[in-house]
């Protein structure tokens, strides 16, 4: 049993602008824990989390793999989230490198086929498109969940880049909900990029039917 990262240093004020770990975070942790041995055996050099928010997930990956075995990169478009990610890394003795960035923009050219573990818990809640756009532009807490049409507006942007980022042994973990049309995502990634995928975990949490997708070559 891998302990859930210590988040006791984060305050109510942090959670006013940064997403507080909830069921969607915990199902992702459970999926990663389920794969812990395989992930260790991969000896990953680079782990990259997109939209790291509180830093809970990257710290958890760091706890699985060990603080000095892997480079832990974490991007978030929200400044406060990047700061929470850094603090959560320190609190849990995992040297996470937070970067304030839109998805992977400044990393793309140098991380071509270099990412061993890619993780994204995107804003997946279906909303009006303008709501998702405004949230990403103002970089507020709404940006952590407002996903626009089918909840796929932000995820779609990243899906186009996954193939470019993943190393030959790389894995991509994505959080989704049923309304995102998971079979369509899987089919599209297979057809366009020849990436295979599995639903490795799913559960109901209140109104949400949460799924964890794992993509690999």
């Amino acid at each position: 049993m891998i302990p859930t990262p210590d988040l006791s240093h984060l305050t109510r004020r942090d959670y006013e602008s940064v997403y507080e770990p909830a069921e969607d975070t915990f199902i992702l942790l459970d999926a990663l824990e389920q794969d812990a041995d395989e992930l260790r055996n991969m000896q990953p050099s680079i782990s990259l989390e997109i939209g790291s928010g509180s830093g809970c997930v990257s710290s958890f990956i760091g706890t699985i793999l060990g603080p000095s075995n892997t480079l832990y990169l974490a991007t978030d478009i929200n400044e406060r989230a990047a700061s929470c990610t850094a603090r959560t890394g320190r609190q849990n003795n995992i040297p996470i490198e937070p970067i304030i960035a839109n998805l992977v923009a400044p990393l793309r050219s140098r991380l071509r086929h270099a990412v061993d573990i890619l993780v994204f818990n995107p804003p997946y809640v279906p909303t009006f498109e303008s709501e998702a756009e405004d949230a990403q532009t103002t970089r507020n807490i709404q940006g952590a969940w407002a996903g626009g049409a089918n909840g796929m507006q932000v995820t779609d942007l990243l899906l186009e880049q996954v193939d470019d980022l993943l190393s030959s042994q790389g894995r991509f973990y994505l959080v989704a909900v049923k309304q995102n049309d998971v079979p369509a995502i899987q089919e599209r990634m297979r057809q366009r990029f020849n990436l295979r995928s599995d639903v490795v975990l799913q559960r109901r949490a209140g109104r949400e039917h949460l799924l964890i997708l794992r993509f690999q070559r």
Partner: peptide, 14 residues
């Protein structure tokens, strides 16, 4: 903490 390992990965994307 911008360490040189991270700096070695960042590029301008303007």
């Amino acid at each position: 903490m911008v360490r040189l390992i991270t700096h070695n990965i960042l590029a301008c994307h303007a």
